[in-house]
């Protein structure tokens, strides 16, 4: 007496609603259209591609042997300067980002206007690339490490401030209420209530940003903002490819060393 097979309605299960499928289709279509349009219109000179193998070979030949002797006289000092720029820039960024992050966190600052204002600062700091900040600060402070440090600091505000305010927003309400119930002043609530809760996130953010900043500090010199990029720029302009190779190897070494340091510190304190 089971239902006749012919009566079973052929039901097809769909994972997504028609609206969702349409939205996805539109995205796919848009992506494909953008790629096709870009490939068709982008200006690529075929002769340059044909010439590429020869040029790469030429570059490698000029790079070898690497000018190891150039390291003590021309690389070490700017390389250290780059590291200083990255570290001081990160510190300055954190000092500026912490108050903004407190303002941006909705649970800390229950005032929508201030929240939006702080978020506007964070977004605009982030949207301007480090190199553009560097161009600005070179115009303000003149060429040199000060411009680079300020560029790193101002660009990093956006990143550190955003992540820090998110960490603050995730912090546990109970601890804060307990402190406020004892009549603790605002600073005590911040130091003994919020700080211990965001401490791991804080260090993770700072270390991550420092790692990024070490990489970025290497290119600041291309626009005159100090560090190893200045040496790179000079060597490039003079076509001293063996020196360029030396500088690249040095940057690679520092980047790898920074990554090892960050991994080591993370394992110890997080």
């Amino acid at each position: 007496m089971s239902g006749a097979p012919g009566l079973a309605i052929a039901r097809e299960w769909q994972r997504f609603t028609p609206g969702e499928r349409l939205a996805r289709f539109v995205v796919y279509l848009g992506v494909v259209a953008a790629i096709v349009a870009s490939i068709q219109t982008v200006e690529v000179i075929p002769e340059f591609i044909a010439d590429a193998p020869e040029q790469i070979g030429d570059m490698l030949r000029r790079m070898w042997p690497i000018a190891w002797g150039f390291y003590p006289e021309g690389v070490q000092a700017p390389l250290l300067e780059s590291l200083h720029i990255a570290t001081l820039g990160t510190v300055a960024a954190v000092l500026m980002a912490v108050p903004v992050a407190f303002l941006a966190a909705r649970n800390v600052t229950p005032h929508a206007g201030l929240n939006y204002f702080a978020k506007l600062i964070l977004v605009s700091a982030r949207s301007v690339n480090t190199l553009i900040w560097a161009l600005f600060f070179v115009a303000v402070f003149g060429p040199g490490a000060l411009a680079g440090t300020m560029a790193i600091a101002f660009h990093s505000i956006g990143f550190t401030g955003k992540l820090l305010s998110e960490a603050l927003e995730e912090s546990n309400r109970g601890t804060i209420e307990a402190l406020q119930a004892t009549g603790a002043p605002w600073l005590s609530v911040a130091i003994k209530g919020y700080w211990p809760q965001v401490k791991p996130a804080f260090w993770a953010i700072v270390l991550f940003r420092w790692d990024i900043n070490v990489r970025e500090s290497a290119v600041l010199g291309l626009v005159g903002a100090g560090g190893v990029g200045m040496a790179l720029d000079t060597a490039l302009n003079l076509f001293q490819w063996d020196r360029v190779a030396m500088i690249l190897v040095a940057i690679l070494g520092v980047v790898i060393a920074a990554e090892i340091v960050v991994t080591g510190i993370r394992r110890r304190i997080l």
């Binding site: 982008v42 200006e43 690529v44 000179i45 340059f48 591609i49 010439d51 590429a52 040029q55 790469i56 570059m59 790179l232 490039l236």
Partner: peptide, 12 residues
């Protein structure tokens, strides 16, 4: 920088 040397100035 390296690709500018390899394939010349421009978008590529």
């Amino acid at each position: 920088i390296l690709f500018v040397k390899a394939v010349g100035f421009g978008a590529l």
